[in-house]
């Protein structure tokens, strides 16, 4: 290793994320304020809505990504993110998505007079969670939503 390489490696070591990551605050539940802060940090325009029916969520955060409506539900101990499309797919196709997916799952919801596809992901916070992990959860779902938009076209 020549001198320049050594200096370069040293600089890289200094700015490597693990230094900053080690200082992140770890909590075991998520407040609505934390979710708001993370969404604002990403630059998302969202609205807040009370949970529907008997849903135990604390609050819903609704916004649009890839022209699809996204809902982030805060259950305090876990987060749930979903986007829904009123469309029917064969279960074979739903399974095909799930076979390829890593950070989401697709479910078919058949109601009396409608059929909906729900793309969803959950983040369990009881083992600990950081704001960065919540940000990553929302951003990762954005990638899934983009792929999903193409998948259901």
């Amino acid at each position: 290793m020549n001198r320049l390489h050594f200096v370069f490696a040293f600089v890289i070591a200094l700015v490597t994320p693990h230094v900053a990551l080690a200082q992140a605050k770890v909590s075991r539940d998520v407040s609505n304020e934390t979710v708001e802060k993370v969404l604002q940090g990403i630059g998302l325009k969202f609205t807040k809505a009370p949970p529907k029916d008997k849903d135990a969520a604390l609050l819903y955060f609704e916004f649009t990504r890839s022209d699809l409506p996204v809902r982030l539900k805060n259950y305090g101990k876990d987060l749930w993110i979903e986007t829904t499309v009123d469309k029917k797919l064969r279960l074979d196709d739903v399974n095909r998505w799930n076979a390829d997916a890593k950070f989401s799952r697709l479910v078919l919801i058949e109601n009396k007079d409608s059929t909906t596809l729900s793309l969803e992901a959950q983040l369990d916070c009881t083992g600990g969670v950081t704001e960065a992990a919540i940000r990553q959860f929302v951003n990762r779902f954005d990638e899934e939503t983009k792929k999903f938009a193409k998948f259901v076209k």
Binding site: G127, Q136, R140
Partner: peptide, 9 residues
Amino acid sequence: DCEAGVTEG
């Protein structure tokens, strides 16, 4: 997803 960092816990 460990991209943003995870703890042992």
